[in-house]
Structure formats: structure tokens, C-alpha cells
Design a protein around this nucleic acid. Sequence first.
DNA 1: TGATCGATATATCGAGCCGATAGATTGAGG
DNA 2: CCTCAATCTATCGGCTCGATATATCGATCA
Lengths: 209, 209
Amino acid sequence: MVELAILGILKEADLHGYELKKHLRSVLGPLSNVSFGSLYPALKRLERQGAVAVVAVDDGPARPAMPLTGSLTGEAAAFRARRRATRGPRNKKVYGITPLGEARLGELMANPADDERSFGMKLAFFRWCDRPTRLSLLERRRANLRQRLEETRRAVAAQEGDDPYVRALIEHDTESTIRDIDWIDRLIASEQEQLAGDDRDKEPTGGHP
Amino acid sequence: MVELAILGILKEADLHGYELKKHLRSVLGPLSNVSFGSLYPALKRLERQGAVAVVAVDDGPARPAMPLTGSLTGEAAAFRARRRATRGPRNKKVYGITPLGEARLGELMANPADDERSFGMKLAFFRWCDRPTRLSLLERRRANLRQRLEETRRAVAAQEGDDPYVRALIEHDTESTIRDIDWIDRLIASEQEQLAGDDRDKEPTGGHP
DNA sequence: TGATCGATATATCGAGCCGATAGATTGAGG
DNA sequence: CCTCAATCTATCGGCTCGATATATCGATCA
């Protein structure tokens, strides 16, 4: 799950660990509050698999992108080298996604695991999918929500104890699920509309004077 | 988190592991689908801590609760003993909550961890709390939801990329959170109403002809 | 100058949780 | 009698989290 998040963010831009966490928080918000304890091991895994690679190692923000002309450059470089020797470099490792990583991202988007958090994450990265993939993900999500609703209803019917708090909990959960299904329905409708639009653009069979 | 669930269920009745899982699923439903991989280690932990204890070891459903009078008893016992020796007992360990466990349940209910799942679980066990505890839990939940809403709004304001799917996700999440807050508000109101009712019963200061 | 403080940044550890799986018993039906 | 599905306890590997360690950077203030 963290791997999906990392690859999705890295597809947008090359980032180092700390930035990655900030982007994760800002894009996915309350979903998937990835901690360092999962982020760094996941980056290692992905690097071992060849899905991401270290693009650059930054040792300080003061370093200019291009070497400056003039006599000061040599001195500054010598200073930085000395500092690195005595105090150690900052060692900001900037990661980027590889072609293999993009393939892996595709797999992870398509895999059937589909709880609240996984689905939210996939939706946040929908721009990387084509429309058929989006539609199938939305439809699977809808099927899951409907099944869950059905299960809850059966559980309510078979319930013996009638605690008011449990009842309130179940009712609220049911309402939320229904609203989620409506929402997914709207997303599906919008997606199908755009799909029709794509088709019209591609093959305009209708007579146009 | 699993410990809270176990203690809350065991407070209702003594159960063995498998039954515990079934009750967990039926009471908490889609929240907290506890797996065996967490259930059995948690039971061990709780037993080690003295919060639960093995009340009985059942080796078959045919065994009557009370020993029957008459000559058949001895023979039946011998048969069971032989079966146990040759094929091994079923070893259904029935767990019960201890006084120490009830204290632990109180602690877990009061602890500040308060995400979606924890709160749902606590609400399902509200009948074990007094009204002030319930109110403070509800109010803390409301505060958390409000804070989350505020954070999301700030994140939206600071957003640069304008992906329609991310936008849809955030909007839906915001709406859901607002509805959750309304729901909590209603629960709080109902609780306060009943609190007032309790007070009227206890000290009827108002003149009543 | 230097002293301190909060943010930045990488990394690891223990413990808990989950999904898969093993291994065994029991009851129903063929 | 045999097989099959359900019941029941239990463990394993892998992932995740919260806490923590370690170190640098930038700003503020004396």
C-alpha cells in the first residue's frame, strides 16, 4: 500500500524521503498517514526491486545547480569538500521512478485489494490510468460497498441484543455506505459520459452538413 | 485495539476463541475485522496480564453442564477419558473476564486514541460507561473531526495542482466528515437530555403541586 | 562570534496486526 | 465406513506504526 503511494507521488516529480512524506500528507491528506517507519523500508524495497532509483545526492541547498564562473568557485568547492570530510555530507537522497516502477504502479493500481484507504489512494492517482481501467476500479468498488451493505442488513436482521448505541452505530454506518455508493455512481456516470465524448471525437459517424 | 474488543465482548459472556471472533464480527460488523493472527496472541497477552482467565475447557458439545445422577455417569466419563487419550481432547478454551480485566477495559475506553475504528468500537461498548465518560468521549471525537476538517480546508487552500479526481476525493471526504460531526452532535444532545432527566429524577427542586 | 532552538532529514527498533496457512476434530450425508 | 465441510486453536512472515537516535540547517538573539 505504501509502495503504491510512493510510486504515484514519484511519477509526478523526483523527491527525497522527507519531501515524499510531505507530499503524501498533502495529496492523500487524512488517508494513509505514512510514517517514516514504513516509508524508508518501503523505499529500500522499491530500490532493491529496481522500481525506484537514486537520481541525485544533495549535500546542501547552498550548492548552485551550475558551477559559477570566476575565482571563488574553487575556494567554495574546497570549503565544501573539507566540511564534508570533517562533519559529513547532508546526504539527501533524491529518488525517481524507473520504467519498471511505472509497470509496478500499473499492477498495484489493478490489484483487487480495495478497502477504504486503498481505494482512496487509487482514486488520487486516477490520472495515470486510462478510462476502461478507471471504470473497472469504480465498478469493483461499488460492488464491494453493496456487498458490505447487504451483510450489514443481514446482521441487523439476525441481531438479538438491542443496544441503542450499537443501533446508532449501525444506522450511521449504513447511511454512510449508501452515500458512498451514490458518490461512486456519480463518478461512474461522469466517466461514461466522457468516454462517449472520446468516441464522438474519434469516429464522428453522424452526418454533419 | 483488539484487547478492547475482546474485553468488551467477554464482559457480556464467557466465550472461546472461535465464538469470540464470530461475536466480534456480528457486533462490530465492518469495523475491526479481527483476524486469528491478532486474536490468539491478544488472548495470550491478556491471560498473561491477568485480564482474562480460562473458565472451562470443553472437550465436546455432548457433555452436559451438570453431571447426571445414575449409573451411566461413570461409564460416560470413562469413555470420554479413553477418547481423550487416543484422539486428544478438543480443548476448547472458554475465556472469561476478570475484575482486573474490567479495570483494564475502563482504561482502554478512556485512552485518547480515537480514530475511526477505535471510536466505533468504544461506541459499541458505551453501555459499560457512565454518562460523563460517554459525553467526554463524544466531545473528544467531535473535536478531532473538527480539527481534521480544518486541516483538510487548509490543505485545499494551499493546493496548487488541480486534479479533478483528487478534488472529488477531498470534497467527498469533507462532506462525510461534516455528516459525522452532525451525527456526533445529535448523540451528544441525546446524552445531555438523558443526563438532565437523571438529575430531575434525583433532585426534584422545582415546585411540583 | 557563538549559543541555542526548531525545522529538516535519514534511519532503526520493538511490538502489534493481518492474511495465509497448518493441523486437528466433529457432524452430516452418501 | 468414508469423505467433505465446518469448527477450532495456533503460528509464520511481512508490513505498519509510534518512539527514538543522530545529525545538519537556518534564524534569532546576545
